[in-house]
Amino acid sequence: MAIAVLGAVAVPAYGQKPELGMLDQLDHGEWVLRERGDGGTTHRLCVDNGRKLIQLRHPGLACNRVVVVDAPNQVTVQYTCRGRGYGRTHIRRETNDLIQIDSQGIVDGLPFSFAAEGRRVGDCR
C-alpha cells in the first residue's frame, strides 16, 4: 500500500515543465530591444538562452533568483547580486520571437527602470 501511495505522489511531479520553460522556447539569435521612452533607444544582443534576458542590467553575474510568476506566456523573477545590486524582471511572450520586458532595480548603487519590446531579427553575427 505504501508503495502505491508513493507512486501516486511521484506521477504529477514527473509531468511538470521545467522552471522558466517559457524562456527556453524563445528563438535563439540576434534580438533588438527597443526601450519605451528615451527616444526608443535600441540595444542588440545575441540570445543563445532566453534566461539571459532576466538580468540585462547585471549580465554574467551569478545572482540568487526567486521565481515569482512562472506561467506559459510570462515570467517574473526577482534576483539579488551580492554587493552589486538587485532586480525584478517581468517578461511576457507574444510569440517566440517577440517579447515585452519590464525591469527595475539597483545596479552598483544606482536605480534603473526600463520597459522594452524585444524582437528577434536574425541569426547572431
Results as ranks from 00 to 15, higher is better:
119 R>S: 06
111 P>G: 03
76 T>L: 09
68 V>W: 09
38 D>T: 15
65 R>N: 07
7 G>R: 08
110 L>D: 12
119 R>Y: 07
38 D>C: 12
117 E>N: 11
83 G>K: 03
83 G>H: 08
108 D>L: 11
64 N>S: 13
12 P>R: 01
14 Y>E: 09
98 L>S: 13
26 L>T: 01
120 R>S: 04
82 R>S: 13
101 I>Q: 02
22 M>H: 00
67 V>Y: 03
119 R>L: 07
113 S>H: 06
12 P>W: 13
104 Q>G: 06
97 D>V: 01
18 P>S: 04
2 A>H: 13
98 L>W: 00
96 N>A: 13
89 T>H: 02
93 R>K: 14
77 V>A: 00
121 V>I: 12
39 G>F: 07
92 R>E: 15
45 L>H: 06
32 V>K: 14
28 H>D: 10
36 R>N: 10
41 T>Q: 15
61 L>M: 14
92 R>D: 11
119 R>G: 05
14 Y>C: 09
30 E>S: 08
77 V>N: 03
6 L>R: 06
89 T>A: 03
125 R>Y: 01
72 P>E: 15
89 T>I: 05
78 Q>Y: 10
33 L>D: 10
26 L>C: 05
33 L>E: 12
59 P>G: 08
105 G>E: 01
52 K>M: 15
80 T>C: 07
91 I>K: 02
6 L>S: 14
66 V>Q: 15
53 L>N: 03
79 Y>T: 04
30 E>F: 05
69 V>K: 11
68 V>F: 08
14 Y>W: 14
58 H>V: 04
52 K>L: 15
101 I>T: 05
29 G>I: 00
22 M>A: 03
61 L>D: 04
18 P>D: 04
17 K>F: 01
14 Y>N: 08
61 L>Y: 13
100 Q>G: 13
74 Q>F: 01
55 Q>E: 07
94 E>L: 13
106 I>P: 02
43 H>M: 14
41 T>I: 14
33 L>G: 10
20 L>S: 02
115 A>N: 10
48 D>H: 03
61 L>F: 12
36 R>W: 05
20 L>W: 00
